[in-house]
Design a protein around this nucleic acid. Structure first.
Length: 488
RNA sequence: GGCCCCAUGGUCAAGCGGUUAAGACACCGCCCUUUCACGGCGGGAACAGGGGUUCGAAUCCCCUUGGGGUCACCA
């Protein structure tokens, strides 16, 4: 018995944009599976698309992945013994493998132009047959190939598709079978610019990096037979595949990066004040179910319980409302101290300056339980810190009651005479107003809340007053009194 | 159109031959709360249709319908 084989999984994004929820979910499933089996999770950058390549995308992916708590033990930025982990740095490796295929006759140069090919494709589509490469350059004589290459004709390298069917056992969907006539004929493995095509690069990379399991989106099912042929040509064993269901947009179709009906990029959620743990938890539930009734789970619980058998086969709508709920759930439970920096920056960016850390901490303790997105704290902070209050309609109505003036005049006197600025101090002050005016309950609290907060709804009154501070409290009461009296 | 995948409430989903068909989000009530929220309790709401197999189908098979994916020198 040798050492138990450890699983090796990877997430291989193309650096063509921002990390979106679909990609994050795929990365997460790979990560969870790898961690569950004490294996290795690898990040590899699949940058063979030179046209769509976006400058800082790879680093941004890495940063957002880390922010989410998805960490890789090997790969981009961290290295490892199977590198390099970026395709464009592996060109020499691909070249060697292409040469092997060409020499053994499994691949050959194709001189067809894109125009010629698309004309054929359109015709085939119109006739209702599977669009496929006709094999035009398949049987070119060796010397003709040499002449045309010598002459400088542009060419791609195509893989000669065998005549037998391929099948594999998908971890999520079971046995899948493909006939050779449905793979589209001999396919391109190297573009005319010399860069390999995705299907070829991933296969070589996964093979060389000894990837054991490939968990990816359902849209890759039809790519699998081509990759299988490639593994076969290299005499290698393919990894185990698992195709997870698609994430659907409101239209019931695969979530498009251009779909604006939904916030779908991780950095957007980050800006909106979503907590990474909440997104991590939510994403894990998108297409996978833990089985029991518990849905809110820590990262470790998720790792412990994750398995592919419980991944569903049908696509899932992205339920933003549920994410919001879950984020609120995490926000209500989080330690305010951990959010100090982020909250300060968030408020600052929106033109609200928090007095100090002590205030900020008390503030967060007070309002965090009331929000579902961190950005919502802005409104509360503004209300607490602004010099004057805008009285909402219901607040005005409350202040119109005859007892309101009595209460507020008394309250003003009390806190003007003595105010220590603590929640307990305000509590005592209000009690004193009650003793002196004999007014209690709603008639006592509501005028105070209305005058000081401008609204009838809000967080705990005493703690709110404490955050407003003695000076502003007095000022607010007096201003409210002036307004009330002028209105008669 | 060819090939492939999928099908339980509005949404996410348990269920893997016998259940009063879980649970969560959302929605609607009620309770709690001197406000709001949190929380608690309760409610409405589903097996796409048709054939089989079986003593018995949400569960197994077939067909229909519906939805989706993919058919690039993109990934």
């Amino acid at each position: 018995m040798g050492i138990a084989m450890t699983v090796r999984l990877r997430y291989a994004p193309s650096p063509t944009g921002h990390l979106h929820i679909g990609g994050a979910r795929t990365a997460l499933f790979n990560y969870l599976y790898a961690m569950h089996h004490q294996g290795t999770f690898i990040l590899r950058i699949e940058d063979t698309d030179l046209e769509r390549h976006v400058a800082n995308a790879a680093d941004e992916f890495a940063e957002n992945l880390r922010w989410l708590g998805i960490e890789w033990q090997e790969g981009y930025q961290v290295g490892g013994s199977f590198g390099p982990y970026t395709c464009m740095e592996r060109l020499g490796i691909y070249r060697d493998h292409v040469d092997k295929l060409v020499q053994s006759g499994r691949a050959y140069p194709c001189f067809c132009t894109e125009d010629e090919l698309s004309a054929v494709r359109e015709k085939q589509q119109a006739e209702g047959v599977t669009p496929h490469y006709l094999g035009t350059c398949r049987a070119l004589a060796e010397d003709e190939r040499a002449i045309r290459i010598e002459r400088g004709d542009a060419y791609t390298i195509r893989f000669r598709v065998p005549e037998h069917a391929v099948s594999f056992d998908d971890l999520i969907r079971g046995a899948l079978h493909f006939e050779p006539e449905h793979v589209g004929g001999d396919f391109v493995i190297v573009k005319s610019n010399g860069v390999p095509v995705y299907n070829f690069a991933v296969t070589v990379d996964d093979m060389l990096m000894e990837i054991t399991h490939v968990i990816r989106g359902e849209e890759h099912i039809s790519n699998t037979p081509r990759q299988l042929y490639l593994y076969e040509a290299f005499g290698a064993n393919p990894p185990i595949f698992g195709h997870v269901p698609l994430i659907l947009g409101a239209n019931g179709k695969k979530l498009s990066k251009r779909d604006e009906s939904i916030v779908q990029f991780i950095d957007q959620y980050r800006e909106l004040g979503y907590l990474p743990d909440a997104i991590f938890n939510f994403l894990a539930l998108l297409g996978w179910s833990p089985g029991g009734e518990q849905e809110v789970m820590t990262k470790q619980e998720l790792i412990d319980r994750f398995d592919l058998e419980r991944v569903s086969k049908s696509g899932a709508f992205f339920d933003a409302a549920k994410l919001q709920w879950m984020n609120g759930h995490y926000l209500h439970a989080v330690d305010p101290a951990t959010l100090l920096e982020e909250a300060r920056a968030l408020l600052f960016a929106r033109g609200v300056a928090a007095p100090d850390d002590e205030w900020l901490h008390a503030f967060l303790s007070l309002v965090l339980e009331k929000v579902t997105q961190l950005t919502e704290i802005e409104g509360y902070a503004r209300n607490l810190l602004s010099e004057n209050v805008t009285l909402e309609r219901d607040a005005q109505e409350t202040l119109a009651s005859p007892q309101a003036i009595t209460v507020l005049e008394c309250f003003a006197g009390v806190i003007d005479a003595e105010c220590d600025g603590t929640p307990d101090g305000f509590k005592a002050a209000i009690r004193r107003v009650q003793d002196e005016t004999k007014i209690k309950g709603k008639d006592l609290f509501m005028p105070i809340r209305a005058a000081l907060m401008g609204t009838l709804h809000g967080p705990d009154l005493n703690r709110s007053l404490s955050l407003i501070g003695c000076v502003r409290c007095v000022k607010r009461v007096r201003e409210a009194l002036v307004k009330m009296k002028s209105l008669g």
